[in-house]
C-alpha cells in the first residue's frame, strides 16, 4: 500500500517497504550475535553473551528468534536487501532453529532468565518464531514439537495478553507443522479466551492495565495465529481492534507514552499492515524521521522480535 513516505529521492517507497528495509539494516547485527561455525558445539546459538563472551552460563531462548529474522531476510526480494537468496542466511536460520530445539527442557519449556525457569513468555515467543521459520523455509522439525505444544496448551499467563497471544500463534503453527488438530483446537481456545477478556475489559490486559505497545504485540501475534489457523472471526476482530488502536497513533507515528501499564514506547506494526490500516504510513514516517522507537534503538534482546515484526509487513 502506498504510504506517501519519501525515503528515496527517486521514488516513493510504500510504508511496508520502509519498515522492511529498516529491519534488513539490523540483520548484520543479528548475524554477529550468532555462532556460525558449523563445527562448533554451539552452532546456531544467537546468544553471543553465552557462546562467545561466556558472560552468561546458559543461553536465553529468546535470542533464537533470529531464526525468523534470517528466514525473512533470505526470502525478501528487494534490490536493497543483500541477504535475499543467500544460502548461508538460510543455513543460519535453520541452525538457529536446531539449536532452539536442543534447548528445550524435557517438559517442552524453555528458559530465559535462569535455569529451569520454565518461562511461558520464552516458550511461547521462541516457539512461534522457530516453527514459523520451519514453515517459511519448508523444513521439518528435528525434534518432537508436540511436547512444546503440550506444555503451552497446559500452561497459561493470564496477566499478559501478549504472551497468551504468542502461545495461541505457537500452538496453531505447531498444529500445522505436526499435522495435529489437537494443537489447533488449543490455539482456538486460547484465542477465544483472549477475545472474551478483551471484550469484558475493553482492552488487552497487561498486568492489570492497558498498554498500547504490548497491545500491538498481541495483535501481531493474533494475526500470525489467524493466518495459521484460518480463524476468520479472529481476523475480523483483529481488524476492529487495529482500527481502534490506530486512532491513538499520531501522524508522526508516536502515541501518548504516559499512562501505559508497562511504560512502553514501541509499536509493532504487522497487524496494521495485515489490516491494511493507513496508520502504517504514520509508523513508517516515524521511522524515517527518527521520531519513534525503532529496532535499531533497542538492545539485542528486544531488537530481534521487533525487526521480525517489521519484516512481516512485506510477507509472506
Amino acid at each position: 500500500m502506498k504510504g506517501g513516505v519519501k525515503a528515496d529521492k527517486d521514488r516513493e517507497m510504500d510504508a511496508a517497504e520502509v519498515l522492511a528495509l529498516e529491519a534488513i539494516r539490523q540483520v548484520p547485527r543479528a548475524i554477529g550475535l550468532a555462532d556460525r561455525d558449523p563445527a562448533g558445539r554451539t552452532y546456531g546459538c544467537a546468544d553471543r553473551y553465552f557462546w562467545h563472551y561466556k558472560f552468561h552460563d546458559f543461553p536465553n531462548a529468546r535470542f533464537q528468534e533470529t531464526s525468523e529474522l534470517f528466514a525473512r531476510a533470505f526470502l525478501f526480494r528487494h534490490p536493497s536487501n543483500p541477504f535475499a537468496g543467500k544460502e548461508h542466511v538460510r543455513d543460519w536460520a535453520i541452525a538457529a532453529v536446531r539449536f532452539w530445539e536442543r534447548m528445550a527442557r524435557s517438559d517442552g519449556s524453555f528458559d530465559e532468565a535462569y535455569p529451569y525457569e520454565r518461562s511461558f513468555c520464552a516458550t511461547a515467543f521462541s516457539a512461534m518464531h522457530a516453527v514459523k521459520t520451519l514453515l517459511l523455509l519448508s523444513e521439518k522439525p528435528s525434534s518432537n514439537l508436540r511436547t512444546v505444544g503440550q506444555w503451552l496448551a497446559f500452561h497459561d499467563s493470564p496477566d499478559t495478553a501478549n504472551q497468551r497471544s504468542a502461545s495461541a500463534a505457537a500452538l496453531a503453527l505447531i498444529g500445522v507443522i505436526e499435522g495435529s488438530d489437537m494443537f489447533g483446537r488449543s490455539a482456538g481456545r486460547r484465542a477465544a479466551a483472549l477475545w472474551e477478556e478483551q471484550t469484558r475489559l475493553g482492552y488487552f490486559n497487561e498486568y492489570g492495565g492497558k498498554d498500547i505497545g504490548y497491545t500491538s504485540i498481541t495483535l501481531s501475534a493474533l494475526a500470525v495465529y489467524a493466518a495459521a489457523s484460518g480463524d476468520a472471526e479472529s481476523a475480523a476482530r483483529i481488524k476492529s481492534a487495529v482500527t481502534e488502536l490506530s486512532t491513538s497513533i499520531r501522524p508522526d507515528g508516536r502515541y501518548d507514552y504516559g499512562d501505559q501499564s508497562r511504560a512502553t514506547r514501541f509499536l509493532y506494526p504487522f497487524a496494521l499492515a495485515r489490516a491494511g490500516d493507513a496508520a502504517l504510513s504514520n509508523v513508517a514516517r516515524g521511522v524515517t524521521e527518527d521520531s519513534i522507537l525503532k529496532p535499531s534503538w533497542m538492545d539485542d534482546r528486544y531488537m530481534i522480535p521487533f525487526a521480525v515484526d517489521y519484516l512481516r509487513c512485506v510477507g509472506p
Binding site: A113, Y116, E117, R262, L293, M298, D299, Y302
Partner: peptide, 26 residues
Amino acid sequence: HKILVSLFVKRSRSPYGASSRFYTPE
C-alpha cells in the same frame, strides 16, 4: 527451587517494565 528463585532472582519479582526505558526523542 521456587523459594530460591524468589529470594535470589530479582527479575522474577519485576517483569512489568522489562521493555521500558528505551530512548525516544521525548
